[in-house]
């Protein structure tokens, strides 16, 4: 069960208050009428489906009802950060390993490893610098 930090409410709340809403940072073509079938199909149906770092949109459905983003590992289920709409992730597949070694900070400056693999749990024991 996730314990999710809402970047608007500035609080950890239970997973049940939230609802996942798919891949984050999708950009709707500015002029849908002018894109090809290929581009339109890609926009509608093709999603990243990584085994690893994923940026996804969630909604705090039973809380502030605002949408926000989560960076999460789809294998360990570790939530690496939550951030507001319009912001960019600070942790990406490219820099995640480096980040992981340094320890990963969540939005409130704490650590979130619920559901994580044992090898990740040591992150909990380190103090963020």
């Amino acid at each position: 069960m996730f314990h999710i930090f809402c970047p608007y409410c500035q609080e950890y709340r239970e997973e049940e208050e939230f609802h996942p809403s798919g891949q984050a940072h999708l950009v709707r073509p500015a002029d849908p009428a002018s894109v090809s079938d290929d581009e339109w199909g890609d926009y509608l149906f093709f999603r990243d489906n990584p085994r690893g770092i994923h940026h996804e949109m969630w909604v705090h459905r039973l809380g502030c009802r605002k949408f926000f983003n989560i960076t999460r590992d789809t294998t360990s289920y570790e939530i690496l950060e939550t951030y507001r709409m319009g912001e960019q992730p600070s942790i990406t597949a490219a820099n995640a390993e480096v980040r992981r070694e340094q320890g990963v900070q969540t939005a409130d400056g704490g650590w979130q490893t619920v559901g994580a693999q044992p090898e990740n749990s040591r992150l909990n024991e380190e103090t963020p610098s």
Partner: peptide
């Protein structure tokens, strides 16, 4: 589960 996952386990809710 509504979110992506490769963990071969499901959530309690």
């Amino acid at each position: 589960d509504g979110y992506l996952g490769y963990g071969q386990r499901g959530s309690f809710p």
